[in-house]
């Protein structure tokens, strides 16, 4: 019968319309600003810099090695390396970024900076409401805006952050072990030297002390 197909189709739309009152599957609209979907854990949008501890300036993991800057496909990262070294969160002397800018209007959220970072210093954020009325400066994020705490990282990507923390702790443990051994070796060498020389010069003594102190720190 002509019109059979049309009637069948209309029955289908009716089923969907009435179904939307009873079936969650058929009513999928979310009234966005008031109502929000739960955050999916793997989501990424723009990068941020992770810091350990309470002070973002002290705790930045970034050592400004420029790897992400070079690998970034649209070249949206700009880093200026420091001239001096500062102790990082575990006290090791490191370079730090004097400037770390990300141009969010250029960034395409590809995550390659995260993949290539050997220090787990840059991670992907989930913050997406970044609109600004300043077309240029408002979308150029400096390091004070980019720096976010490790706790925040744990909040947005719990599984990933736990894995990163475990790996970092292991690395630090190894590093400490190495330093201890090196310090012990240095101390032993110094002791042997002192024993060999009947009258060791006082300057040398203080020198070794200072260096071993710094290393064990």
């Amino acid at each position: 019968m002509l019109g059979n197909g049309i009637i069948k189709g209309l029955a289908e739309t009716a089923r969907n319309f009435f179904g939307s009152y009873v079936d969650k599957e058929r009513l999928t609209t979310v009234q966005f600003p008031e109502e929000r979907l739960p955050q999916i854990e793997g989501t990424r949008d723009f990068p941020f810099l992770v810091y350990d501890g309470d002070d973002w300036e002290k705790g930045l993991r970034c050592v400004s090695c420029h790897i992400c800057e070079k690998e970034c496909p649209p070249k949206c990262i700009f880093i200026e390396k420091s001239k001096d070294k500062k102790p990082d969160a575990v006290g090791k002397l490191q370079f730090y970024p004097v400037r770390f800018d990300i141009d969010v209007s250029v960034c395409m959220s590809c995550q390659i900076c995260v993949e290539v970072c050997p220090f787990d210093a840059i991670k992907m954020d989930v913050e997406f409401e970044l609109s600004s009325d300043d077309r240029f400066g408002g979308l150029l994020h400096h390091k004070d805006k980019l720096a976010k705490s490790n706790e925040y990282y744990h909040k947005i990507h719990p599984t990933e952050a736990a894995a990163v923390d475990a790996a970092l702790a292991e690395d630090r443990e190894k590093e400490k072990e190495k330093q201890k051994q090196a310090a012990a070796a240095a101390a032993a060498a110094a002791a042997a030297k002192a024993a060999a020389a009947a009258n060791p010069p006082p300057a040398a003594e203080t020198n070794t002390d200072a260096s071993s102190k710094e290393e064990t720190k």
Binding site: E69, K75, C76, I77, F78, D101, D103, L140
Partner: peptide, 10 residues
């Protein structure tokens, strides 16, 4: 136009 993060060739 505007290149806040320019380096290398750019």
């Amino acid at each position: 136009e505007y290149e806040p993060t320019a380096h290398d060739e750019v």
